[in-house]
Design a binder for these strands. Structure first.
Lengths: 323, 323
DNA sequence: CTGAAAGCGCTAACAT
DNA sequence: ATGTTAGCGCTTTCAG
């Protein structure tokens, strides 16, 4: 920058103004621009960040980018940030709370402008007040904005769809983190739908670490009716990944889908991100989630946005239901 | 930091030394450490980066994180960088060369310590000499290190596996970018295997933008033998995504897989990243690729590493072949 | 071993 | 409109 100033025969401040689009005399502006391109000058973002306390960088923390849902989320968050001139530091916590905390710490040291976090552990006590944060699917307390799909409605819709498709005994199966998050509301939606239709709920609730297939096998046997027929004719699973796992197992056991058992997942995942839906599913508006997170994070006055900020979901047919 | 120095009653330089593990008297070290935790002090990475010209940040550029292969790559690159105390800025170019260039530019301004790039367009003329870069699957010139799977061998293995599984007429089908990259070597491997076994090659080469299914449909008809039977009994596709697309189409047409047609893809993708393989495939050592990229990028003397740096691939059975 | 001070590249307030 | 300058938080040289 000093070199540019010398080359253009102007003062340092003038160069700075040209760079930052602050009114400068046309003649000088031209001289500076020439000098910049001649010298191949580029601003040093770190020096600027040091002074301006603004880095145009946002941290996104996800549990696992390999999971297509989180990959899709990262994709949209990146797009949205890019449009606003922000960069994204992607942090994969691999579902370890130590790594989550490490990354929150790092973000703070790196003076990022904000954090979008989809975490499992409770990070609320580790975040400083001056670092904006938005969580996804994790409503920690009223001071931290949380963006989430309408999980209750989604669970309700899924269950009613099964019933609409002729299921008499829809079951709910979940697995995942032991920590409570907004996704637990999917079960609430299921229970509400059961209640409305006078159906006895049938639940299988597993957690990470359980042998899902073995547990399901046992569940399948245990719930069988006295005449040996299946105890359920539909399953709503907490996500598409689990749904697909069960789909393959059920088919391998010789049952027909959707004839014998109908399946509905949650998330709206597609093969390779853009091909067919894996299963019939309740699709989350991932793009809208990403957009909302970025908007809330980067805006200054969030007093009027509801917390949690709930976004609508959509049913998608994916072949594992009759409709 | 000033506050810490005051609190601990020592000079600024001493605090700095404690932070950076430079020998300091035990008494002072203790005082400083106490002051740090009391004040909740954190180093400002930007100020440090400004001074030290080192930011412990690396940029990863991929064409599309939603694609499971790139998501897997991002996952492993992140892991590897994390272990070395580096952060990853994830850039999704969405396969647009302008965005690729924008991100390379940004990386340079942000004074990252290096770039790992999987790009389509030729970026070689836009990178400055003082910013280390490693490419994946894209051998631009001998001065830029390139890491890649053994695509020739992989193509060869895939084709021989089809032959071993009884195929008399294995075809090769590709789609993707019009730019040449290391992945084009998969075709070379196919051709070599055909030659070795005295088989007449049968190619369908498409590019992004083509209607893959329509083209394949036409190809299927056009290659049929005079007696109406299929012109090929095996397909090696350039990647798993295409393979899976064709799999579903072929099944929908009433053909049996692997009885009528056997399929082998390339990449080694699994459903949801950790479930079954999508198709029989040549698996790329993604973890090793990531590790190699990071190692080469962050090491100072790369004179002796071969360029391109070729990594071995493995055949995986995924149900679309007989063996 | 410790303290003082220069300066990394930039912005912004101030002076001209 | 332009030039000058202090200082952002840190590292590092140099004296003591």
């Amino acid at each position: 920058m000093k070199d540019v100033a010398r080359e253009a025969q102007v003062a340092l401040g003038t160069v700075s103004k040209v760079i930052n689009n602050i009114p400068v005399g046309d003649k000088n502006r031209l001289k500076v621009e020439e000098a910049i391109s001649k010298l191949g000058y580029e601003v040093n973002t770190y020096a600027r960040g040091l002074k301006a306390q603004k880095t145009y960088t946002v941290t996104l923390i996800v549990p696992d980018v390999v999971n297509p849902f989180f990959a899709l989320l990262a994709n949209y968050v990146e797009l949205e940030l890019f449009e606003r001139g922000y960069k994204m530091i992607l942090c994969d916590s691999h579902a370890q709370s130590e790594k989550e905390l490490f990354y929150i710490n790092m973000s703070s040291q790196n003076k990022v402008d904000g954090i979008i976090a989809l975490t499992y552990s409770d990070i609320s006590k580790h975040i400083s007040v001056d670092l904006p944060i938005v969580t996804i699917d994790r409503h920690l307390n009223s001071s931290i904005p949380c963006v989430s799909s309408d999980n209750i409605k989604g669970g309700f819709m899924a269950t009613e769809k099964l019933i609409e498709c002729g299921c008499k005994f829809p079951a709910y199966i979940r697995t995942g983190s032991i920590y409570t998050s907004e996704t637990n509301n999917r079960k609430i939606g299921y229970l509400e739908a059961c209640k409305k239709h006078g159906i006895q709920p049938l639940l299988l609730e597993l957690v990470d670490g359980d042998d899902t297939i073995s547990c399901f096998e046992y569940f399948l046997e245990k719930t069988k009716l006295s005449d040996g027929s299946l105890g359920f004719d539909g399953i709503f699973t907490v996500n598409d990944s689990l749904c697909f796992l069960l789909l393959r197992y059920i088919l391998s056991k010789g049952y027909k889908i959707p004839e014998d058992i109908q399946l509905i997942g949650f998330d709206g995942m597609r093969h390779f991100g853009n091909q067919d839906y894996y299963v019939s599913t309740i699709e989350q508006p991932v793009e809208l989630i990403a957009k909302s997170c970025v908007e809330i994070l980067l805006s200054d006055h969030n007093e009027d946005v509801p917390n949690p900020y709930i976004l609508p979901v959509t049913y998608r047919f994916g072949g594992t239901t009759k409709l």
